[in-house]
């Protein structure tokens, strides 16, 4: 079981304040989408949650423990991160990359065990890329690479999975595939999931709870229906949209209104 509590967190890079007084908690088993314009602090918030950035103010607790007190190794056994892209300069095979997910569990001079290999095979299977195991990571397509990194994260056997825009740069079929998988990890495996998302419609379809950030503050937090309103979206993104209902799921469906289209409405 894992829960994440972020209380009164401020964070700034050298050139300015990025997050202000962030307060939010995520309970074990939740699936949460982080939304907000570019630069609103989504990625920074994920980096704080994984402990690789330290808050200037406030505290982040993982399972009740202050994350600043936990070793990287301990965190890596509980929390896995799927960043947007990896560039890997050497010719590792897919199987070797997924095995890297076992790093926090391996002792320096030990060999990986049968159990480690089984976990890697399970992760490859779960993500549906067993047939890629012997292929070189650098030769794969963007969608395949994203799946490999996801499989690597799963080999960590995390309780909390953080994803940074997992569908960016992917075509619509791969977007669906990744998000269906993430959803399945949440309902089937009980993983707690927080994902930064840029596509509002995908976020609305696949996440139970959405957190909307604007200029480093939490602007809205709730179900897709509560968060994705026309007023909020125009406030936060300064974009003209109409919110309709998805014909199958009933969740909000955002329709972009091109400039000049207002005239056609009447």
């Amino acid at each position: 079981m894992i829960s994440l509590q972020i209380s009164q967190v401020d964070f700034s890079y050298l050139d300015g304040l990025v997050l202000h007084k962030i307060d939010l908690s995520v309970k074990a088993g939740e699936i949460v989408g982080l939304l907000g314009p570019n630069g609103s602090g989504k990625t920074t918030l994920l980096k704080l949650a994984s402990g690789i950035l330290k808050p200037a103010q406030g505290e982040i607790r993982l399972d009740g423990y202050s994350i600043s007190q936990l070793s990287r190794k301990y965190i890596a056994r509980k929390v896995a991160v799927v960043p947007q892209q990896f560039h890997i300069p050497f010719a590792f095979t897919t199987g070797e990359i997924v095995m890297l997910g076992r790093t926090p569990f391996l002792r320096a001079l030990a060999e990986e065990s049968e159990a480690d290999r089984r976990l890697v095979n399970n992760a490859l299977e779960l993500v549906g890329i067993s047939e890629l195991a012997e292929r070189r990571f650098n030769e794969l397509s963007g969608g395949e690479r994203q799946k490999v990194i996801l499989a690597m994260a799963l080999a960590q056997q995390p309780k909390l999975l953080l994803l940074d825009e997992p569908t960016v740069h992917l075509d619509i079929a791969h977007q669906m595939e990744i998000l269906e998988l993430v959803r399945e990890l949440n309902t089937g495996q009980g993983l707690t999931i927080i994902a930064a998302m840029h596509d509002l419609n995908l976020a609305s379809l696949y996440f139970d709870r959405l957190i909307l950030l604007k200029e480093g503050r939490v602007w809205a937090d709730g179900t897709p229906n509560q968060v994705l309103t026309e007023a909020r979206i125009s406030e936060v993104f300064s974009a003209l949209v109409r919110v309709e209902q998805h014909p199958l799921t009933g969740t909000p469906h955002i329709v972009i209104m091109p400039k000049g289209s207002a005239n056609h409405q009447k």
Partner: peptide, 24 residues
């Protein structure tokens, strides 16, 4: 050097990627 073999493998993902895998 041999003691760092796993960590060097993880460092192929970059500093951030290695940190996510538990490398200090």
């Amino acid at each position: 050097a041999r003691f760092f073999a796993f960590h060097l493998n993880a460092l192929s993902l970059g500093e951030e990627g290695a940190a996510y895998l538990g490398v200090e």
